[in-house]
Design a protein around this nucleic acid. Sequence first.
RNA 1: GGAGGAGUGGCCGAGCGGUUUAAGGCGGCGGUCUCGAAAACCGUUUCCCGGUUUCGCCGGGACGCAGGUUCGAAUCCUGCCUCCUCCGCCA
Length: 426
Amino acid sequence: MLDIKFVRENTDKVIEALKKRAEDTEILDRFLGIEHKRKDALEVVEYLRHKRNKLSQEIGYLKKEGKDASRLLSNAKAISDQITGKENTLRELEDRAMQELLLIPNIPDESVPVGRDETENKVIRTWGAKPEFSFIPKNHWDIGEGLGILDFERAGKIAGARFVINRGAGARLERALMNFMLDLHTKEHGYTEILPPILVNRASMTGTGQLPKFEDDLFKLEEDSKGLLLIPTAEVPVTNIHREEILKDDDLPIYYTAHTPCFRREAGSYGKDTRGLIRQHQFNKVELVRFVRPEDSYKELEALTNNAEEVLKRLGLHYRVVSLCTGDIGFSAAKTYDIEVWFPAQEKFREISSCSDFADFQARRAGIRFKREGKKGTEFVHTLNGSGLAIGRTLAAILENFQQEDGSVIIPEVLVDTMGIDKIVK
RNA sequence: GGAGGAGUGGCCGAGCGGUUUAAGGCGGCGGUCUCGAAAACCGUUUCCCGGUUUCGCCGGGACGCAGGUUCGAAUCCUGCCUCCUCCGCCA
């Protein structure tokens, strides 16, 4: 959410941001119209309340002295009735203004490349090299099914499309990746490990920006379950840890990492990546979350992105880092780097991590503030997060990049200890 | 799921319809004293919104959350949330 005052006083900047994002500017006009009425109503209500408070105080004094207050009383009653009416109008305007404000996206940072869609994203750097094969490399789902470590068919029977069963070395590989990532981030990158709830309330979803705009992407529990929703990413519970808190200056920066299952409806992506591990309704992910001082924000984004990249480096997977353009960055983000890993069978780079700086957008929605030592007032923190990494996609990348002609797959050196084997064979 | 109790500033804790403009204490900060420190003493100490002539001042709001009663609510009423004690169930 943007600052109301900022939107009011910098309308031109908000319009520019909406245009850069290739979004309609109509939302802003709607908001401003309501906002002006809201401010007027607020002034009236506060003036009336002031009058009433004065009268009530006088009534108190008169009664204490045993004098008659009936004239003031009827006067006060009239004002009070007036206030009730104006307050209802005000409340309605506040609700409507907030509804609109929650639908206005974040303002992209200056350094974000301007463009309409993903074709205008900018490659920042590339690491490693494409593996060479003396045979035609197979898709990861064919490899996985061939080895008996991935079972899409039976998962369909149990739950439906876009689910998978990991079996034997496939299940173990998922677990080895989870441990490897969490250990790397906690032992070497300074993150504190979190195991959060994966069911959350609507306030949490609103805090990080999933609601109200993206309700269709979420799985919801049915009635009688308090309206809880399944998280689409650990970003939601982990960022909301500090919702409605005022942190101390020296609490910052805070680095959290969490492994959770993630649940996504994938509404509107029918026909996209229908096979394999790329797009599942349920997948595991290790998430990185940072709470930082505003002045450190973009430096912290570079560091967080590097933390995610380090996972791929140690696994020996070829990847590139892409700066998303204004038309492609997410609703809440001010700047986003996607990390894309090489999939030889598709001959394509595919997203395996998305690292975003939200500036104060989420912090304002969620009320996450901090207080500087010796300074009056509070400021919003900046929040960042990124996958470090999506585990299913990492597993898929390993299968494809390290496959052998006989259908076996070589295990990356860093996972051999946990796996207990250096090669998955049939 | 059932029965009872409780939620007040950074923390403890009083207040239970009108000088509460949230007492008092602890902690924090500033000062006096001191070579320096401790102690003692004095002062100060929440957040949000709006206005403004902006080192400040004025107004409104916030006592778990949301409503209601009243001229006036921390205080009375209703619903919800969280925590504690006991019973039931349970990995």
